[in-house]
Computed example of a mutant assay.
Amino acid sequence: MTYRLAVSAEMQFVDLPFVERVRRIHDLGFEVEIWDWTTKDLDALTATGATFSSMTGYVTGTLADPDGADELLRTAAASLAAADRLDCPRLNVHGTGLDGRGLPVRPAGVVTPAMWLTAARTLGRLAELGEKAGRVFTLENLNTTVDHPGTPFARAADTFALVEAVASPHLRMNLDLYHAQIGEGNLISLLETMLPAIGEIQVADVPGRCEPGTGEIHHPAIAAALRRLGYDGVVALEGWASGDPERALEAFRAAFA
């Protein structure tokens, strides 16, 4: 295995207190991903000894309008300070801020050329913040059919275009294959095309967003493609457990062994 495995503590062991979720994931040999750092006890998380591979890189704000961009950059700077405390290398952002239900705070039925330009400029400024802090921001694709209707720049093709336009090692893609399967398909082709821009890969099966083996994606083929391509980053399970969480994580590990 040339890559490392991580698990979202937001979606596994959900009956446990958050710090205990992190500890359980760490004890099972995985790196840990978190979302909104403002709701977490960062000192307690650090004390678990876990390796944090990714966290949400902003609190509020949007990419494609000037006021929202300023807010995103302001809260991204605060997020970098939190990432420093956790020694977390990657901070994740989306095409727009999401509310508690995963819906866009500023939905867009049509993404205009002006929005594309503003988003690219905002991401360029974000990459500059990342460079100064020695961290990497990742731009995640989402799906608009099931989970995040109305989100601009949602497709993997969109995030790839924006990351390529900025052309900075401090802005990479978070290629979420669960979202991509719903929105685009052709997952191995996406990996082959977008590999140079990828900073992280997230997975969950479709439908249901649970561990590998519960849906239609053949994750061992994904794993084989990643080994063939020489991917050496993180593959993270950002999905629910269909039953017992420990069995779900073992199924994840087995699919990518």
Rank of each mutant, 00 (worst) to 15 (best):
A165F: 00
P104S: 11
I25M: 04
L195S: 05
R4I: 10
A78V: 12
G230I: 01
T2F: 15
S54D: 07
L63F: 06
G208F: 02
L98M: 07
E200L: 15
G109N: 09
D158K: 00
E184D: 05
G150E: 06
A6I: 06
A64Q: 01
H219F: 13
V166Q: 03
V32Q: 02
P104C: 13
V32D: 03
L16V: 06
T39C: 15
A167L: 13
R106V: 14
L45V: 08
E131V: 13
L187K: 00
L129Q: 02
A221T: 13
T144I: 09
V19K: 05
L142Y: 03
G185E: 04
D176E: 04
F52L: 05
F153Y: 02
H218M: 12
Y178V: 00
D65R: 06
V146M: 11
P104Q: 08
A248V: 06
G233I: 01
L175G: 04
G230A: 08
E246I: 12
H219L: 06
G49E: 10
R135G: 14
V206Y: 06
G29W: 10
E192I: 12
P17T: 04
I25G: 07
F160V: 11
H148V: 15
L190P: 09
L187D: 01
D36I: 13
E10P: 15
L91Y: 09
M194V: 13
F52V: 14
K132F: 12
F160G: 13
W240Q: 09
A83H: 05
L126V: 11
Y231F: 14
K132V: 11
V22G: 01
V146D: 12
A108W: 00
R227N: 02
V235Q: 12
A9Y: 10
A9W: 09
Y58E: 02
N174I: 10
A44F: 09
M1P: 11
R101M: 15
Q12I: 15
E128M: 07
G102Q: 07
G97I: 07
D43V: 06
I182Q: 13
G208P: 10
F30C: 03
A83C: 01
G239Y: 01
